[in-house]
C-alpha cells in the first residue's frame, strides 16, 4: 500500500523518465512533483496539462457520440520527449492525473506505459 511519495519514486525509476507530476483533475492542483523539475513550474504545468487533458476528453467525447468515454492514457510525442498522461480514479476524491515526460532516445515507450499502468493500479487498490 504505497503512498503518493513512494509512487513518485517508483515512477522516477522507470527508464528514461525526466519529470513526473501528479495533478488533481477536478481542480488542476499540483499534488506532487519529482524529477529534473527545475525547468518545470509545477503549479502552472499542472493547471496547463490538466486543461490539455480536459480539452482532449471533451473533443473525443464529442467525436464519438456513442456512450461514455473512458480514457486509459494519452500519449503525445514532441521534440522534448514523450508526454504520458494517465487519469487515475480514486474512490475518495475522484480523478487524479499522473503525468510523465520521457526521453525519446533513452526510453521504451511501451515499457513505460506498462509500468505506469501497474503503479497507478497499486495506488488505488
Amino acid at each position: 500500500m504505497p503512498g503518493v511519495e513512494d509512487c513518485l519514486t517508483e515512477l522516477m525509476d522507470i527508464p528514461g523518465v525526466l519529470d513526473a507530476l501528479v495533478v488533481d483533475h477536478a481542480t488542476g492542483t499540483a499534488v506532487a512533483v519529482a524529477g529534473s523539475g527545475q525547468h518545470l513550474d509545477a503549479e502552472r504545468s499542472a493547471a496547463a496539462l490538466n486543461e490539455a487533458l480536459r480539452a482532449t476528453l471533451d473533443g473525443l467525447a464529442e467525436a464519438m457520440t456513442t456512450g461514455t468515454l473512458r480514457m486509459h492514457d494519452m500519449i503525445v510525442t514532441t521534440d522534448r520527449g514523450h508526454h504520458l498522461l494517465k487519469p487515475v480514479t480514486t474512490v475518495l476524491d475522484g480523478e487524479m492525473v499522473i503525468y510523465l515526460r520521457i526521453d525519446v532516445e533513452r526510453s521504451n515507450l511501451a515499457l513505460a506505459r506498462h509500468r505506469l499502468q501497474a503503479i497507478s493500479a497499486r495506488l488505488t487498490t
Binding site: 503518493v4 511519495e5 492542483t29 499540483a30 499534488v31 506532487a32 519529482a34 523539475g37 499542472a46
Partner: peptide, 19 residues
C-alpha cells in the same frame, strides 16, 4: 533528501513522516 520537491508548496513532503 530524495528527488521529490514540493509541488506548489501546497504539496508533498508528506512522506518523510509516512516513512
Amino acid at each position: 533528501g530524495d528527488a521529490n520537491r514540493a509541488a506548489n508548496g501546497a504539496a508533498t513532503d508528506a512522506n518523510e513522516d509516512g516513512a
